[in-house]
Simulated scan of single mutants.
Amino acid sequence: MTGEGTDRFPETPPSTDIFTEDLLAGETALITGGGTGIGEQIALAFADHGADVAIASRSMDHLEPTADAIEQRGVDACATTVDVRDPDRVAEMVDTVEAELGPVSVLLNNAGANFLTPSEQLSTNGWRSVVGTILDGTAYCTFEVGERMIDRGGGVILSMGATNSVRGAPYYAHSGAGKAGVHNLMQSVAAEWARYGIRANTIAPGVIRTDGVMEVMDEATADQLVEEDLAADRLGTPADCVPMAVFLASPAAAYVTGSYFVVDGGQLLSPVPG
């Protein structure tokens, strides 16, 4: 069911060819922040492997082209706006998705926010905006969808973390703290909700070359990072995160919950001397 590629909407990354085309058939996936970057690429891959896919963000402008690309893969799509910091809007989003596509069986918490600032200059509003999107938004979506999954007897919850949540996040303290909270939240609900057939895991990318990342990182900084910190000798791409998400959403990961999966090109490794 692989879709035809374009510059913005490429075919499923070759690394997912190991999965059968119908691996996610019968699933309904909801992806926040699904109109751009990592979320967009995972949405397309879920569709390529048979899932109906809903995408949500604050702006419909980001969503409609991606929704069209999802439908071109031969599955159903839903695009809806949401501010994940508002639990009432989150509930409305899930109601809209389930009215159009049916019960959500896979949730991917991907909505995020970030900006560069020294910690001593981080304003209260700046903190609230970023942590509110990353941690509060993930919590509100998880609790809203999780309650419904409990009633239905199972589901999969995935959340996008980040490697800066485990090694400190200089100049991104708000983002690092929020992502650390996401990891703990996934572990907590994984332990509580396993009895209901719900699996919850965190995917932790390193530095991924997206438009959002490159807005806060110039090319010189990116080059320095690659040279000094990345064993893989390149920045990651959104496509690098896709196979992990497909695997964790699928029955192949039926015995995997509460875990933290790093996709960082070796950034967390100790540097090789010399």
Results as ranks from 00 to 15, higher is better:
Asp17Ser: 14
Ile18Asp: 04
Asp22Tyr: 06
Pro14Phe: 11
Gly39Thr: 03
Leu30Ile: 14
Phe9Asn: 01
Ala43Met: 10
Glu27Thr: 14
Ile18Ala: 09
Gly39Asp: 02
Ser15Pro: 11
Gly26Phe: 13
Gln41Thr: 06
Glu11Gln: 10
Thr28Glu: 05
Glu21Asn: 06
Thr36Ala: 04
Ile18Ser: 03
Ile38His: 08
Pro14Ile: 14
Arg8Thr: 07
Gly26Trp: 15
Asp22Pro: 03
Thr16Val: 08
Ile31Lys: 00
Gln41Gly: 05
Glu4Leu: 15
Gly39Pro: 02
Ile38Asn: 09
Pro10Met: 09
Ala43Ser: 05
Glu4Phe: 11
Thr36Ile: 04
Pro14Tyr: 13
Pro14Gly: 13
Glu11Ala: 14
Ser15Lys: 10
Gly26His: 13
Pro13Ala: 09
Gln41Asp: 12
Phe9Ser: 01
Gly37Val: 01
Glu21Pro: 04
Ala43Asp: 04
Thr6Trp: 06
Gly33Thr: 06
Arg8Val: 06
Gly39Leu: 01
Ile31Val: 09
Gly37Met: 03
Ile18Glu: 08
Gly5Arg: 08
Gly33Glu: 06
Thr32Gln: 07
Gln41Trp: 03
Ile18Phe: 03
Phe19Met: 12
Gly35Asp: 13
Arg8Ser: 12
Thr12Gly: 13
Glu4Met: 12
Ala43Leu: 08
Gly39Cys: 06
Glu27His: 11
Asp22Cys: 03
Pro14Glu: 14
Ile38Thr: 11
Gly3Asp: 11
Ile18Gly: 06
Pro10Lys: 03
Thr36Lys: 02
Thr36Arg: 08
Ile38Met: 05
Gly3Val: 13
Thr36Met: 01
Phe9Met: 06
Thr28Tyr: 08
Gly26Val: 15
Ile42Gly: 06
Thr16Ser: 00
Gly37Leu: 01
Pro14Leu: 11
Gly37Trp: 02
Phe9Tyr: 09
Gly3Met: 15
Ile18Cys: 01
Thr28Arg: 05
Phe19Thr: 09
Gly39Glu: 00
Thr36Asn: 02
Glu4His: 15
Thr20Ile: 04
Thr16Met: 02
Thr28Phe: 12
Ala29His: 00
Ala43Pro: 05
Asp22Lys: 02
Thr6Pro: 02
Glu4Ala: 15
Ile31Phe: 00
Leu23Tyr: 10
Pro10Trp: 08
Ile18Met: 09
Ala43Asn: 04
Glu4Pro: 12
Gly5Thr: 03
Pro13Leu: 03
Pro10Tyr: 14
Asp22Ser: 10
Pro13Asp: 04
